[in-house]
Amino acid sequence: MARPIKETTDRSPTNLLVAMVLLGSGSFLWIRAALSAPSTLALTAAMDGCLTAGIAGVMLALLHGIRYRTALLTLAAPIVLVQFVASGATVPSFLPVLGLELTAFGLFGLPLSRLPQRRPTAPGSAHAMGPAHPSPS
């Protein structure tokens, strides 16, 4: 017999809301920082590395099947916290970096919110293939 097919649910309106909030707030942060002083978009090497680690980490988590909101909470939030602590909240490039990260996370979430979510079938509904064969030993 064939394996049971996984059922899908409807698209996630919550992911769309989260993605839109992240996209809007992130865009606002880095545009505001760029308008106040254009030199704030010149990132230091350390902040550029944190930006790359944050975005690449979330992308890899999404590629491995971790849900969007879980990836944001378990990967992105600790990296942003480390960036904030490392910068001492005094470096003027923290807000543009945070804005760029939030914008990227929002852009990731837009197509993900339009895809149907998968959920496994209930264990009792799967058809057994038959009794296991006894071991030859």
Rank of each mutant, 00 (worst) to 15 (best):
A128P: 05
T74C: 03
S137V: 12
A76F: 11
E101Y: 09
I55K: 02
A42D: 10
I79C: 03
P136Y: 14
L81I: 10
A132K: 13
P136E: 10
L63D: 02
L75D: 04
T44S: 15
T9Q: 08
T52E: 10
L110Y: 08
L95Y: 13
S137H: 10
P120K: 08
H127C: 04
V97W: 01
L51H: 00
L22P: 01
L100F: 05
I79M: 09
V18W: 04
L23I: 08
L73P: 00
R118Y: 12
L23M: 07
M47Q: 13
A61H: 04
C50E: 05
G130M: 14
G124K: 14
L62F: 04
L29I: 04
G106D: 03
K6Y: 03
L43T: 07
T90A: 07
L22Q: 01
T90L: 07
Q83I: 08
L17G: 02
L110E: 06
L29S: 09
V58C: 00
A71R: 00
L62V: 01
W30V: 06
P136V: 04
A46G: 13
G106I: 07
L81F: 11
Q83A: 15
M47E: 09
R69H: 00
A19I: 06
M129K: 13
G24I: 10
L95R: 07
L17K: 04
G109Y: 02
L16N: 08
R114S: 10
R11L: 00
T44H: 05
I66Y: 03
F108M: 15
E7R: 13
L62K: 04
L72H: 01
T121G: 15
A37G: 05
A42V: 13
S113I: 01
D10A: 13
A71G: 14
G130D: 12
A76V: 10
T70R: 12
G109Q: 03
L35V: 11
S27L: 09
N15R: 10
V80R: 08
S12K: 02
R118F: 12
R67V: 05
A2G: 03
G24L: 12
P96M: 07
V97Q: 11
P116N: 14
G26M: 09
H133L: 14
R114Q: 12
S125R: 07
A42E: 13
I66P: 00
A77W: 06
P131S: 11
H127Y: 13
A126F: 11
S36Q: 11
R119K: 14
S93K: 06
A122C: 05
I79Q: 07
